[in-house]
């Protein structure tokens, strides 16, 4: 491991920490605090969903069938798989297996991109039939013998506004995650991580698992019930 030029402690260890262990714990706690703010951000939107659903349960039950559970379910499995590869990556980082760490980071990136591609086809499929967030909501057209005009009922627009905002902000988190994972993968390919220092991988993993958890709740609430 590279040592600090002056006093011989590990290069990754900042002066104000007693040990690598303390630095790791502090970084991880900071990440958990950030994740709480993320949970609170999304909980605002879950509260919105809860209030509108309790006011208009029959509308939500009707219009949620517009969302394709096969695409949503497939994306759920894709995100779960990406969480699995992140966890595997950290496992291999802890075992000093840099090659397998990189393989798992790249797999995670691929899963994240698949998620976004599916989301793209979902969004454009909805836009093609006038299902937009907000005032532009104007469902029309016939898909597989199903006339979208029947979804033009009061409060259906609210459901789809909630759908687009919640999944949109979630997708934004996926895009940010992709950016961070590219950076982490590049650093891993330069051999910067080892069992002695893998804090950035651990923190990015925590973020990614949270993005996965948000989707675990979004999928049944929006697509299934």
């Amino acid at each position: 491991m590279a040592s600090h030029p002056l006093d011989g402690h590990p290069a990754h260890l900042e002066h104000h920490f007693v040990s690598s262990e303390q630095q790791f714990d502090a970084a991880k706690m900071g990440m958990w605090l950030f994740l709480i703010t993320e949970i609170l951000l999304f909980s605002g939107m879950f509260v919105l969903y809860t209030v509108y659903r309790s006011w208009h349960p029959e509308v939500f039950a009707l219009v949620s069938e517009v969302l394709d559970w096969r695409m949503g379910g497939f994306n759920t499995l894709v995100l779960l798989a990406s969480s699995f590869t992140v966890a595997l990556g950290i496992h291999y980082a802890q075992k000093n297996d840099n090659r397998k760490l990189i393989i798992n980071l790249v797999l995670t990136l691929i899963f994240a991109l698949i998620f976004l591609v599916v989301k793209y086809f979902e969004y454009t499929g909805k836009f093609a039939h006038g299902i937009y967030p907000g005032a532009a909501f104007d469902p029309h057209g016939i898909v597989d013998g199903l006339d979208y005009a029947k979804y033009n009922v009061p409060y259906a627009a609210q459901f789809f506004s909630i759908y687009f905002v919640m999944t949109g902000i979630h997708a934004f988190h996926v895009i940010v995650g992709i950016g961070v994972f590219i950076w982490i993968t590049l650093r891993a390919s330069r051999g910067e991580f080892s069992a002695a220092y893998y804090t950035p991988v651990e923190l990015t993993g925590l973020y990614w698992h949270l993005v996965d958890i948000i989707w675990i709740f979004l999928f049944p609430l929006l697509y299934l019930i």
Binding site: H9, P10, S20, E21, F24, A87, H91, Q94, A195, A196
Partner: peptide, 9 residues
């Protein structure tokens, strides 16, 4: 000093 003592799942 190392993180080797972290629990490896």
């Amino acid at each position: 000093m190392s993180q080797a003592e972290h629990h490896i799942v």
